[in-house]
Amino acid sequence: MLDPMLPEIFQITRVVKETYDTFTLEMRPSAQRHTFPFEAGQFNMLYVYGVGEIPISISGDPGHTERLTHTTRTVGTVTKAMQALRAGDTLGVRGPFGTAWPVDTARTHDVVLVAGGIGLAPLRPALYQILNRRDEYGKIVLLYGTRSPEDILFRKELEQWRARFDLEIHVTVDYAGDVWHGNVGVVTRLIPKAPFDPAHTVAMICGPEVMMRFAAAELLKRGLSADCIYVSMERNMKCAVGFCGHCQFGPVFVCRDGPVFPFARVQPWINRWEI
C-alpha cells in the first residue's frame, strides 16, 4: 500500500438484505489488484462517495479472494447511505487492517465462538476457515445471542451448519415473541453447558463490549486461560493505521494492535470505567 490513506474503488456485485436492519455487500476488488487476500477478523475502511468512511469487519470467506464481503447494520449516516447502494455502484475501500482470529493456533483444539448480534459477521470468516479444514480441529461450538428471532443473521447458513453433525450451534434471543421455541436470555448463559474441553479450547468472542466481558468471565470460570480467549474490540476510528489516535484503549491502538486481542491483553482495562 503506497498511501494508506488513499481508498481504492471497488464495485458492488451483490446486495443481500439479511434482516430488517442488516445487509451484506459483495464487491469485486479494484482493477489494480483483482484479488483481495485477508485474514479472518481483519477489517476495512469503507467510503461512501461524499458521505464518509467507517471501519467494518470483513464477513466473507478468506478462501475466496476474488470477492470482498461485508455485513453491517444500519446505524449511522454512512451505513444508511450504504444501504441504498445497489449492484454496479462503487465504494472506496482501504485495507485490510488489523489482527486476525487465531484460526491456525486453534488447530487440534476445541473451538468456541461466542457471537452477540452483528458480532456474528466478523466471526464468520473464522468459521469458514475452520470448516474448510474441519478434521484439524476438535469440537466446534457456536453460541449466538441476538435481540429477537427476526434479528437472526445468516439464517439459512445457520440452518445448513446446524444440519452438520460436526458442529454444535446454540442460538438464544432476548425477546422471544410467539413463535420462538429456542433459548431465551443472554448468550453468556449458554457457556456453562457448552460441550468443550476447557483445557484444550480456544474461544473467540465478538459482540458488544459488555457481552464480551461477561462471556470472557464465564469462560474463565469454566477454566479457560485468558490467553486462550480472544475478543474483537471496537472503538472510534478515522485512519486505521495508528495516526488519528481515536481508537486507543489503554496502551493499545485497536486498529493497529487489534481489533482481535488475546483477552489477557485487554483484561486489565476492560473493567475500568470509560477507557
Binding site: 490513506m5 458521505v51 468512511e53 485512519c239 489516535g245 481515536h246
Partner: peptide, 26 residues
C-alpha cells in the same frame, strides 16, 4: 499531541468530493 479527525465534504454540484484531515482533541 498528534490526534486528528477527517471531514468528508462535497461541492454544491456533488461532482467533486474531498477528504480533509484536521487536528482533533481527546
Amino acid at each position: 499531541c498528534f490526534c486528528t479527525t477527517v471531514t468528508d465534504v462535497t461541492d454544491l454540484s456533488g461532482a467533486v468530493a474531498e477528504r480533509r484531515r484536521q487536528w482533533d482533541s481527546c
